[in-house]
Design a protein around this nucleic acid. Structure first.
Lengths: 336, 336
DNA sequence: TCGCGTTACTAACCCGTGTCAGTCAAAAAA
DNA sequence: TTTTTTGACTGACACGGGTTAGTAACGCGA
């Protein structure tokens, strides 16, 4: 910038005024043109580091991901989510920093990012949603948005309507004649998403006057293999279900496998409905009926929300809840 | 830092010396202790922006991804790759910036990142590997590592041995008695990965004395649906193959679907082998025989390589080629 | 007592930018 | 003619650190 100033025969201040289009700095058109010309010739590009230093903004938002390698390899959600986030924030000149929080290093691994002024705000994905560090940072005034629901109602978050989605799924099974309906969760019930989905399941049953039977409720944990045993258990129970609501497509793959393993068929012997609608659910045998979760739009919303918070907008409600959608394919069928 | 200096009754310089453990600055233990104590009390954290400005380093590496939303939703590779990269670079205090390059904005969208000093280096994923911008940046001296192979041999890159992997796949089919073997690519043949895999396919055929038949070679494009039609075409041909090597698991899913669609069975009527070994390949019906690509390790290697380049290490060879592994499951079977 | 080498620091400059408070000459108003 | 206003700029400080060159005080040997 100093070079440009020298070359154009003006002060650095003037160059700054011109390049930033500062109002009330009456620079005549001739000078302005000359400066722009020189800047172009000298191939001037501002140093954002210096800019950040003086403005106090980093134009950077961190996405904190805590997943094992195994989870990551299964996960198509995060990719779509990232795409949604970047689409919004890059349009406003922000960038996304992806940070993998180590499961064993319990704290301050990501708090450091904001304390050292590396980023302006934090997007935190679900397993960390109840981390005390999150609470602390939020109370310190750090712009933060959770992806997933917590019990902490005052922290901004973005999530899908899990209860409603589960309700819709089970309602669908009931509508097509099922009364004995099992459930395998997507994750341990300590996760809010799991307990919310369970609640939706129970609500649908209650409305239809079906008794809640604890023997029909099993716990899955993210992976296909975690759906295998629970499904076997359901099939082997004295009074097996005619339909099962699985809280995650990925877990449902293991469940499908288990049904085949016992020599039964989907959907003739058991109907199965999943949750998430990942791409591969179209290609299982049979294609999986499921509840669609708009991963891209969740990311998009999270991006919008964090930007608003960073820019100090006062919003009436900091929580975004997106609707789900029932996608009927071939793994569920009318009970004769 | 000025606060710490004032509180400790020393100059800012001294504080800097102590905090950075500068050699040859003989600060007595007493003073050192006092400064550290005050820094702790005042909860001092350095401002990395300021540090970056003075050191000229940003401790930031960008990963440039160019994928459509649809590709992203299928992709489990990128997630694992990211995990590999962050594992290495965060250990050295670097961070990863993920940038989604718009397919329509052809250039300088990511070059800007390095020119404005936002990042110290670039990791570029495959669709962009032949982008002229890449060439330009490399020639300008930007530290850059490609994920995927190009014809430009002088640019550092990380990739799997595509030719060898394909060779192994087809060799496997030949070993179990197949002679009429089709191929559906993972991507258009303009992609280096596709043409390399095709080459491996041809090499295996040639070695076994099998004539290369162009009618048996089809083109896929990333998605399951792009594997559907080509497979139908192969099945409907006058002399259909008894086995097909598909250049991508994802595309293979569509192929499996096509086989069922025509009322045939895998592997009894056609054997199918994929490429990538994504998690879901274990859960197709039948589970897919495939070639494993170490996504995490590719990311890890890419991270190591870019750090070495940034730190100015002169390496004999800037190209990393990782081996693949044959994973035999149930979609391939001995030809009677 | 003087000179010199250590020890324990510090003043001042630099990185690349934004921005406020002036400055100076020319034009307009009194 | 003198004063005021306007136009066109610029000097200097700030952001939060790293670093080089230098200095004051002290101890020690001659």
């Amino acid at each position: 910038m100093a070079d440009v100033a020298r070359e154009a025969g003006v002060s650095r201040t003037t160059v700054s005024f011109v390049l930033n289009n500062v109002a009330d700095s009456n620079i005549p058109e001739a000078t302005r043109e000359r400066i722009l010309q020189v800047a172009r010739e000298l191939n001037y590009v501002p140093n954002v580091q210096a800019l950040n230093l003086v403005t106090g903004q980093t134009m950077m938002i961190a996405l904190i991901v805590r997943q094992t390698s195994e989870q990551m390899s299964i996960d198509t959600f995060t990719g779509e989510f990232i795409r949604g986030v970047t689409t919004v924030i890059e349009a406003q000149n922000y960038h996304l920093l992806v940070h993998a929080a180590e499961p064993d290093a319990p704290e301050s691994t990501y708090g450091k990012l904001v304390r050292t002024r590396k980023v302006d705000g934090l997007l935190v994905t679900s397993p960390l949603v109840n981390d005390p560090e999150v609470r602390l940072l939020h109370d310190e005034g750090t712009p933060i948005v959770l992806n997933g629901s917590t019990d902490a109602d005052d922290i901004p978050s973005v999530d899908v309507d899990n209860r409603q989605g589960a309700y819709t799924a089970v309602r669908h099974l009931i509508n097509i004649g099922h009364r004995r309906i099992g459930h395998i969760s997507n994750a341990p019930f300590s996760y809010r998403s799991s307990s919310d989905r369970l609640e939706g399941y129970r609500q649908a049953l209650a409305e239809a006057g079906i008794l809640y039977d604890l023997n029909l409720v099993m716990q899955g944990e993210f992976t296909p293999s975690s759906g295998f045993r629970p499904m076997l258990a359901l099939l082997d129970s004295p009074e097996p279900p005619t339909a099962v609501f699985v809280g995650s497509d990925t877990v449902a793959f293991g469940a499908l496998e288990a049904v085949r393993h016992r020599g039964y068929r989907v959907p003739e012997d058991v109907s199965i409905i999943g949750f998430d609608d990942i791409v591969f659910s179209q290609y299982t045998l049979p294609p999986l009926t499921t509840i669609r979760v708009p991963a891209y739009r969740l990311g998009y919303s999270a991006g919008e929300l964090i930007l608003k918070i960073i820019q100090g907008e006062k919003l009436p409600d900091y929580r975004v809840v997106l609707p789900t959608e029932l996608v009927i394919r071939r793994s569920t069928v009318k009970r004769p």
